[in-house]
Design a protein around this nucleic acid. Sequence first.
DNA 1: TAAATTATGCAGCGATCAATGCAGAAACAT
DNA 2: ATGTTTCTGCATTGATCGCTGCATAATTTA
Lengths: 215, 215
Amino acid sequence: MQKHVNGDQDRVARPARGRPRSFDRAQSLDAAMRVFWLNGYASTAISDLTAAMGIGTTSLYAAFGSKEQLYTEALQHYLSLYEAGVWSRFKAAETAREAIEALLVDTAYFVAQGSGAEDPLGCMTTHPVKDDSDNSALALLMRSLRTGMFDRVKERLSRAVHEGEISTALDLGSFARFIITLQNGMSVQARAGVSHAQLDEAAKITMKGWPSWIG
Amino acid sequence: MQKHVNGDQDRVARPARGRPRSFDRAQSLDAAMRVFWLNGYASTAISDLTAAMGIGTTSLYAAFGSKEQLYTEALQHYLSLYEAGVWSRFKAAETAREAIEALLVDTAYFVAQGSGAEDPLGCMTTHPVKDDSDNSALALLMRSLRTGMFDRVKERLSRAVHEGEISTALDLGSFARFIITLQNGMSVQARAGVSHAQLDEAAKITMKGWPSWIG
DNA sequence: TAAATTATGCAGCGATCAATGCAGAAACAT
DNA sequence: ATGTTTCTGCATTGATCGCTGCATAATTTA
């Protein structure tokens, strides 16, 4: 009855034994990512996912294991899609000032990009997932993402100190914390309906404080 | 069987007809506020509330109407308890610089105050509640709170411009947006486990940019 | 004491939650 | 053809969701 509509990815990865999947796994994963991104983990029902992915619950569980495993995979898909985009100019910048400004401006663009109706707003990792205090693989992943962002900013600042761009008097940890906090706030603001233009201007105003910071 | 343990508030407000309440309404409301604050609206079950409030579901609905009405009342209780504390030094400050610094420092203190286990972390209004796009009374209240905070900061900056503290070249809307965004970010950070000390230092580092901003 | 009023505990409502059992369908291998 | 393997749709599981009906308890009013 159903046709085989798999992408080449699946066909290569799996020896084609048994009945083939009737849906494109990567495409369904992308749809699931959008739903999770839009509603968060707890507020997303399996029925929301199956509707968006265009498959039944049995197929969902056969292909992705569980709601939590699907979320984990969707989160990794999210990172592989967007993380490089948000951080590319940060990484490529020659000065710390350009790097930080790029991070803030590009974050403002990214979190306020969607329409809010179908296209999600904000950052997927800013949404509270579930009990953060447990030691599930998902909670550990979320924590490592957060510390990773902080460390990246702090590392860049540290390099700038060595290169003489920033005074040794600046507390790098506190300043990196400030930047990450601002970035997190942008996600909340975007979800509350604040426009890209407003966040972009806020990011640029922020950078006007730079001369005083690097003192 | 049960004893009458009402506070005086109820006894005065209501002509004591019929069986009296066996619990202190204000006390139960306070407990409900903590649960909502800790878990958010969607992730809080009625059973969580009744357990924390020490009453049955029938009593909860008789006294508070519905989950949404209870949340609304809990939110107003939250505001009456803490809003003045966070904003008092902001309001009393003589200069805009002192006002903004007080807001950031006091926010850092407030959001990172709790233990995280029983005492909630972050700001109750930063938690996504439910569908923000509808026109329910609760959604409208949340929106008015957000715009209110922004307006308060912008008003204070405007006054500082008139008083000559801040250059007319500064875009007040963008700068106020920056401050509110940072404040929101503090709530997210605190929930993620960032300590009060780190947020406090970040707030103080932030204020080092002041001379460059006011031009 | 009797009637009226309000609150409580118990039990359960229909709906939805995440997740599964099962039989049949669609591909392979032999 | 026959068997093996994998996937799909349907129906359903037990648990929990927000919420309520109902009988009874506790109080005031008459």
